[in-house]
Amino acid sequence: MKTLFSMLRRPVATFVALILILMLVNVSAPRADNRDVPSPPTDWVSTLDRDHPLVGKIYATASNTVVSAQDMGRALALARFVLLGEIHDNPDHHLWQAWAIRAVSKLRGARIVEGHPQIDVIAMEMIRADQYAALDRFYGRDVEVPRPRPPKALARFLEWDKSGWPDFKIYEPIISQALYEQLVIVPASPSKELSRKVSKDWDNALSQGEIKRLGLDIAFSSDLENALTAEIGKSHCGLIPEAAFPAMARVQRFRDATMADAMLSVGPYKGAILIAGNGHVRRDRGVPFFLMARGVTPKQIVSIAHVEVRPGETNPAAYVDSTPEGKPAVDYVVFTPRTDRPDPCEKMRKDMSKGAPTPSTEKKSEPARNRATDVKP
């Protein structure tokens, strides 16, 4: 009997030991999970202040805490409209924007956002409405048998080198990711001609129906209006006469309303991503203002500012713009090193001293604290 009991007990003990071993392996071994966001791009291209303690950190303004890439990625994937700000000439900001596009697509592919609107479109501030024909040629919409084109071909079709935007090479990661995820790139900015009309002759540039449709009939509060005009003065280094501010403010509002319209072109049941300067993604008076004016709920919008660290400033809250009511103007802030660049205000002074024309009202009015680099050259 004892021998029989020993024979029966041995297989049970072996089985229990095997289960324990498998449990230990399961706990200790790293597991790949398609619900994890991709690794953030921390091989920095910008050279200044890489060792700053905030570099690579993500700050959530609502909770006043530093959060993980996973946390922010999930918030993006759950949103209908994702607004990705930037300083235009910082290549790390474009790498993080491309990462955000990838994170949204990956998490949506993992079905964690079942029932949420599908994001189909990436609207880019750098592309104007009068460039649709060039986009059609890039995508091959004008031929019977379209062929895939490399991302860098878009620069040729858009004549990017004549646009005044920074080198296309630093924007290429965004284009590559959009094509890989099969998201359609659309213009976010109005045509040059219409921008000029809005600047010079607001009363006749747009019909009353178009003004109402875009949400431009909703006036800013006096606090918002004053904040916008003050920012215009700062972003142009105090070199623009105040008499030009109202026209520039009108163009700024028109541009933001047009960007919102580009995002809403997906229809009532889908979503979009915006690539634009940090000033345009502000929740109080930027593109979100016009999205909400047209019925989008605040919870459907997530806004991210990508900012450069400042020497000696380690409080993440100090980098966050505030609304007139004292609330954060964006939802998340991503910190990167600084790009080495000449002082744009000094360049503007030299250009004006040589008799060069003052900055066009078509150009963006965004903060001088970004060393005016959010303003298109």
Rank of each mutant, 00 (worst) to 15 (best):
R294I: 07
I273D: 04
I174R: 04
D92N: 04
K376P: 04
I211E: 12
G233N: 08
E308W: 02
I174M: 07
M126T: 12
R213P: 00
I127S: 06
F245W: 05
N204S: 15
N226V: 07
M292K: 11
P173A: 04
E144Y: 08
A103M: 03
G279N: 07
R128I: 01
I119W: 05
E366R: 02
L78S: 12
P151L: 09
T336A: 09
A227K: 00
D161N: 11
I21P: 00
S191P: 06
C345N: 06
A178Y: 06
L22V: 13
D374Q: 13
R196T: 14
Q208K: 15
A134G: 04
A276H: 05
G140L: 02
Q177W: 03
A249I: 00
A79G: 05
R141K: 14
A103G: 04
L214M: 12
M124L: 11
I240E: 09
M259N: 02
T65P: 01
D217N: 12
F168N: 05
L239A: 08
A205E: 09
R102F: 01
Y180S: 15
R10A: 15
P11L: 10
E225W: 05
S176W: 10
M72F: 06
K363H: 13
V309R: 05
M23D: 14
D136A: 10
R108L: 01
M1P: 13
P324N: 05
R253V: 01
G295L: 01
H236T: 10
T61P: 08
V45K: 14
P324F: 00
L228C: 00
P268E: 03
L158C: 03
S207L: 02
A75H: 13
D201A: 10
R35S: 11
R149W: 07
R341A: 13
A227L: 02
